[in-house]
Amino acid sequence: MSTPKRVLVLDDEVIVAMDLAQTIEEEGHAVIGPFHTVEAAMRAVSDAMPDCAVLDVNLGESLTSEPVAAMLDGHAPILFLSGYEYAGSEIFARFPGAARLPKPLSLDDLLDWVRSV
């Protein structure tokens, strides 16, 4: 068991977000969220900077988690999740320090990342 962390979770797909949160919590970490909208996540970040964040890139319509990432950038490590193989490259290029995992994702990879940061 690694040091417990405060992990922000953002995914517009509620069931997925809940699953991510529950998985992370089961590992002994505290989840901030899970959030389903950019606004809710931004509010939470401005209240308190998390230790790290798991962000779904695409949040439906043409929304992305980019504004949230911009607030976190330089303060907390970011893990992007994306169903897109290549289309997310723009946001990845913008935040070169961020990690990324494809959806559907391997929980081991997710937890390894949370543990490593």
Binding site: E13, I15, V16, G83, Y84, K103
Partner: peptide, 24 residues
Amino acid sequence: IAELQHRVKNTLATVQSVARFTAR
């Protein structure tokens, strides 16, 4: 095509989550 790809991935992610919840 990219959008379809995204939807399929998202659907699979949902399936994955549903499967885990169901298991729990």
